[in-house]
């Protein structure tokens, strides 16, 4: 089947079986490999992209359900909030292995877009679905606070 997708502002046509998760379309067909595979069952958040602005697990989003939506991946995350988050991530040296970090960043952008001044509890609640095996949570939470300050300034 051919599907028409709108990804990072561009229209892309892909050939895929119905039921294929968006994750594998991004990674294998479109070479947008910044979006990562961690579990395939919506339990780790490594595959998080934005669908119409909302952080969404692409491993549990079927290609046929994504054709009407605006999809943004880490490669297309360039707005003001994204820039603040990425800068904060670098300042705080958040990353270790890095595999979870695209997903963490997409979730953090979602959080700060909805709630520019989150409390510690807001951050922990919102980010709880993004697992980090290297356990970089201390710095993730500090970076989100820093990005929030950057956006307020």
């Amino acid at each position: 089947m051919q599907y028409q997708l709108k990804i990072n502002g561009e229209s892309r046509t892909v050939d895929a079986e119905p039921g294929t998760p968006l994750l594998w379309i991004l990674r294998d067909e479109l070479q947008l490999t910044g979006t990562k595979f961690g579990c395939g069952v919506a339990y780790c958040g490594a595959c998080t992209v934005h669908v119409d602005g909302y952080p969404t697990r692409s491993c549990q989003t079927f290609v046929e359900d994504a054709t009407e939506a605006e999809i943004t991946t880490i490669e297309g995350a360039t707005d003001k909030v994204a820039q603040a988050v990425q800068a904060a991530w670098r300042e705080k040296d958040v990353v270790q292995c890095g595999w979870c970090q695209s997903g963490q960043i997409m979730s953090a952008i979602g959080l700060l877009t909805e709630n520019p001044s989150p409390t510690d509890e807001d951050i922990k609640d919102y980010m709880d679905g993004n697992a980090c095996r290297c356990v970089t949570y201390v710095r993730i939470n500090e970076a989100i606070k820093l990005a929030s300050q950057k956006l307020e300034a």
Binding site: R27, K36, T73, I74, Q86, Q101
Partner: peptide
């Protein structure tokens, strides 16, 4: 590792 360009084996 913050903009998706770092290349991992997968």
């Amino acid at each position: 590792k913050t903009n998706g360009t770092a290349m991992f084996a997968m």
